[in-house]
């Protein structure tokens, strides 16, 4: 069935009159120079994200304080990540089928690294992989993201070009801008509808 359908659809499309293929006009996405971090912060905060400047030395302690303030203790982490006393690190070290119950109900926060971030829209770029699976940034009610300042760029076009995305896309690439939200009920914003209710970004200013 699908083979015939394919042949019929393509035959109909090929029989149609064809328009000229237009050129892509010049377009320069916005850049922010020295104001890059300020723009990132402003855009992220505008979508209800929280942002803190930390260092490679103190980020774990800062997480500990931020999560303690929220009464969160059980934290899902990439295998190998250790957390200060007072937090229980639950590694995402098995297939989701084994961990489903823990992921859905058993942790209060999840921690991932960002591959990059985009100042223009206050966006984190994640390429989930074996160590930092896709659901780590989605199921726990609080998502904590570690971002190296050096990986903050101006716009999406820049990150795609610099990291040569077209040469090979991962299984899943994500752009995340703020916590999960909805405005389906009378255009009133509500957070945490299906994904995290809070998004906390720690910018490692020395990395």
């Amino acid at each position: 069935m699908s083979e015939t359908a394919r042949a019929n659809i393509l035959a109909r499309l090929r029989a149609a009159p064809r328009q000229m293929v237009p050129d892509r006009p010049d377009w320069t996405p916005p850049t922010y120079g020295e104001g890059r971090l300020a723009r990132f912060r402003a855009m992220l905060e505008a979508v209800h994200g929280e942002i803190h400047e930390v260092t490679t030395e103190d980020w774990a302690e800062r997480i500990s304080v931020l999560l303690a303030d929220r009464g969160a203790t059980r934290v899902m982490v990439p295998p190998g990540m250790t957390l200060p006393d007072g937090l229980v690190a639950v590694p995402y070290d098995q297939p989701v089928e084994e961990l489903k119950a823990v992921l859905v109900q058993g942790v209060e926060a999840g921690i991932t690294w960002a591959k990059a971030a985009i100042a223009d829209t206050g966006t984190l770029v994640l390429w989930p992989d074996a160590d930092e699976p896709r659901l780590l940034s989605l199921l726990p009610p609080i998502h904590v993201v570690l971002l190296r300042l050096g990986s903050l760029v101006d716009n999406l076009a820049q990150v795609m070009a610099e990291q040569t995305w077209a040469a090979g896309m991962p299984t899943n690439a994500l752009l995340i801008s703020g916590p999960s939200k909805t405005a389906d009920i009378e255009q009133t914003l509500a957070y945490g509808v299906h994904g995290p209710k809070e998004l906390i970004v720690l910018v490692l200013t020395d990395a």
């Binding site: 299984t171 899943n172 939200k181």
Partner: peptide, 18 residues
């Protein structure tokens, strides 16, 4: 300015992915 999530899917789960 952007939606909360832009989800780009290129493959099913690969060996080793969880």
């Amino acid at each position: 300015a952007i939606t909360t999530y832009v989800n780009m899917i290129s493959r099913p789960r690969q060996p080793g992915e969880k």
